[in-house]
Amino acid sequence: MQANVSVRRFNPDEEDPKSYDQEYQVEVDENFTVLDTLIKVREEIDGSLALRCSCRASICGSCAIRVNGHAVLACKTRVSEHLSEDGSFRVEPAGNQPVIKDLVVDMNPFWDKLRAVEPYMQPSMPEPEAEYLAPNDVMLHLVDVMGCIMCGACVSDCTVLEIDKNFLGPAALAKAYRFVADTRDVEDDKRLKMYNEYGGMWDCTRCGECVTVCPKGVAPMERIMALREKAIEAKIPTGSYDGAAYGYRHSLVFEDIVSHNGRLDETKLVIKTLGMFNLPKLIGLIPVAMNAAFRRKMPPLLHPAIPGVGQVRRIASRINAIKKEAAK
């Protein structure tokens, strides 16, 4: 069958470089991947098309691009599943990273963020003569995280990175989790404090995009949530970044309000999280509140408890009892 692929191109060698779309018609069959198609374009039609690829088997992490607006591995994505009715699909470079040429993006920020999480094991010293002992189930759990091939699909579609370039991002934080979850690494405390800082684990908004687009099932957001849990368990809510403290308090207040009212009272959530007497912070929020009101997104000021709230409260106290039991 015939596919029309529209490719977003960019040539930095031009005098006034601008991106533009170019269409190619390619003969494809049922099993053709997006990568097969692009390779065909570059081998038979237009050798100037730049893209990274190598293994053709979703293991080297080279070929993350956007197809019809979402990040994928080109070599893992079948064309037939993305064709529109008129037989076309759209290809663009991965997002959130500067484009170098055509589908090739600058991954230096990606590696810099990886570097920032101290991405190497820090075990107890001195090293034993034989291997460090470790339970197989912990290792198997880590295989899922080590499955990350650093393709950057998650970074491409991360909604936080879109507005805050300082966020460490899903890939680096998933890597960070690998060390915290590895029983051989003994620097959990230091690590959790480090990831607790500005740009760290509390800046994820839990939109879930990274989980959706990750081609290897690493589920970065879930790793970030696991980091948060560990930070809370380890009572590491403070750091030089006050957002970290709020992140922790936010989760406590959230639980408190819901288990009392049966629903979330967003106004109360903000006030209680920041602290009733934290006037500078509260005043700082006035423009946000006004903006929200202006766009009719201001939460109602009064939040009556839901009907049957007693049941919610009973569930909450049961959970608390179980938690206390477990803590013993």
Binding site: Y120, M121, P123, N136, M139
Partner: peptide, 11 residues
Amino acid sequence: EHMGVIFNRDE
């Protein structure tokens, strides 16, 4: 292993 490779383990 000391560098951090997560080899499969026995019991």
